[in-house]
């Protein structure tokens, strides 16, 4: 009968903040190949578990529930912790199975959006600008990027609270916005990448062709056809290579290094 009773212990704002802090600091500290972020998730939820379940047996069962395989984007995990905390607060111990399903059901969709936004698009957009300016000896781009990262960290602090208040309806309410944001950021990222091809890849053709008394500089000919022709060809070549089976980025890097040395030795690039 006691399991049927709705949990009476209420979580406070402080509890939720604590979950947020613990998730940010601990999510990946004990990252391992077996259960990935499981220990981090457990660490984030510990204060909640200790507060909600007074019966030691229930407490232990919930600890075991939260130490199962978990993996999502660290930036997004706070939402899941918050939704989980709200569910456990309302349903108590009988939510055990629900919570298992909730965690595995949410980690995928959140990782899909989170990896794209925080793993690829933001680092691409700000990293490109920072690196481009850095190559010109200007540190300003890197400082802007640092400020953005600090702002993201501050926002992450609120994710558990948002998840706690909005519950699982956050997935439907936020999904449209996140998808729109992802589409917009993708567009911006691709525009910047297009510019990067011509600005950060550099290749100087040193080969020249002598026909009779006329010597033609190779670089000049290429420039007349199209500026940055060699960088475009190199990017297209590696793009094609990466689409082939068994080709990895590591192999591509080694190949480019060997190719550079050969082309320099042959006097084609310099």
């Amino acid at each position: 009968m006691e399991n049927m009773k709705t949990n009476e212990t209420k979580l406070t704002k402080k509890d939720i903040s604590s979950v947020s802090r613990r998730w940010i600091m601990g999510s990946q500290i004990t990252w391992n190949y077996e259960k990935q972020m499981a220990i981090g998730y457990l660490w984030a939820m510990l204060p909640i578990i200790r507060k909600l379940y007074k019966d030691p047996k229930e407490q232990q069962e919930m600890l075991k529930t939260h130490v199962q395989f978990f993996n999502t984007t660290p930036h997004m995990g706070g939402f899941i912790c918050g939704i989980d905390a709200a569910t456990e607060e309302h349903e108590g111990y009988k939510a055990k199975e629900t919570v298992k399903g909730l965690k595995t059901g949410l980690m995928g969709p959140f990782a899909g959006v989170g990896d794209t936004l925080f793993g690829v698009l933001f680092p691409t957009i700000f990293g490109s600008i920072a690196a481009y300016m850095g190559q010109e000896g200007n540190i300003a781009g890197a400082i802007i990027w640092l400020i953005v990262n600090i702002a993201i960290l501050c926002l992450r602090y609120f994710t558990a609270g948002i998840g706690y208040r909005e519950g699982s309806k956050i997935i439907t309410s936020a999904k449209d916005k996140l998808d729109a944001l992802t589409a917009a950021a993708t567009l911006l990222g691709i525009t910047v990448v297009g510019a990067l091809v011509s600005t950060v890849v550099s290749a100087n053709v040193t080969a020249s062709f002598t026909s009779g008394e006329v010597t033609v500089n190779g670089q000049e000919i290429l420039d007349q056809i199209m500026p940055c022709m060699v960088p475009v060809i190199v990017v297209a070549f590696i793009y094609w290579l990466l689409g082939r089976k068994k080709m990895t980025s590591t192999k591509a890097i080694i190949l480019v290094m060997v190719l550079s040395i050969v082309l320099y030795a042959l006097g084609i690039l310099g």
Partner: peptide, 24 residues
């Protein structure tokens, strides 16, 4: 000299990886 050339060309790898990932 080869390393110098490689320093100029290597950013192409990062760009190509990105283009593989993004819906180009």
């Amino acid at each position: 000299g080869g390393l110098r050339v490689a320093g100029g060309l290597l950013p192409a790898v990062g760009i190509a990886i990105l283009l593989r990932y993004l819906p180009v």
